[in-house]
């Protein structure tokens, strides 16, 4: 049993070490595109509702430099986003973290969607019930199943609705 644990740990280390070495890059090697890929999910702190990747202010420039530095240190995008949320508050994230009260922004639309779907189906059902309780008007409305030769019944409907046949 223990052997497996050690083996597993060894394997993990073997996998992680070269990764860690590789992850250390010089700041200059990080491309602007990589920085923007992270910055896209952050908001400019001083001008609201502007994504960080397109914000021209000095503050945003500093933030992007920090992202660049952290990328060079080998940090992943989620780690960097966490860092910014922890230091500058979660309001800098363009997507609210899915925890605590923030879940409401995700849950409420879904709940309302289902609720609306329920009400929609129910009212449709009730309207349908009202319809079946009565003599169906559709009997006269939909054309009787006559011997359809070439006439497309749909076209017939169009003709009727457009009043072409008047």
């Amino acid at each position: 049993m223990k052997v497996w644990v050690y083996l597993g740990l060894g394997l993990l280390l073997a996998l992680l070490l070269p990764g860690a070495v590789l992850a250390q890059r010089s700041v200059g090697d990080v491309t602007a595109d990589e920085v923007n890929a992270v910055a896209r999910d952050l908001f400019c702190p001083t001008c609201e509702s502007t994504p960080l990747d397109v914000c021209p202010t000095q503050t945003c420039q500093d933030w992007r430099d920090l992202i660049r530095q952290q990328l060079a240190e080998g940090k992943s995008k989620p780690e960097i986003l966490d860092y910014f949320a922890a230091n500058f508050g979660p309001q800098v994230l363009s997507e609210p973290p899915r925890q605590g009260f923030n879940l409401t922004v995700w849950v409420v639309p879904v709940v309302l969607l289902l609720l609306g779907g329920g009400i929609f189906s129910f009212s449709l059902y009730r309207l349908k019930q009202a319809g079946t309780a009565l003599p169906a008007p559709a009997a006269t409305q939909s054309p009787p199943p006559k011997t359809n030769t070439t006439l497309d019944p749909y076209r017939e409907q169009i003709e009727r609705e457009l009043g072409v046949g008047e």
């Binding site: 009202a130 309780a133 009565l134 003599p135 008007p137 006269t140 409305q141 009727r160 009043g163 008047e166």
Partner: peptide, 19 residues
């Protein structure tokens, strides 16, 4: 045209009475 227009209202009144 005429056959459509008379239809809904005929049923309306019945339903009105029912509900």
């Amino acid at each position: 045209m005429a056959e459509i227009s008379t239809n809904p209202n005929a049923t309306t009144d019945e339903a009105q009475a029912a509900a």
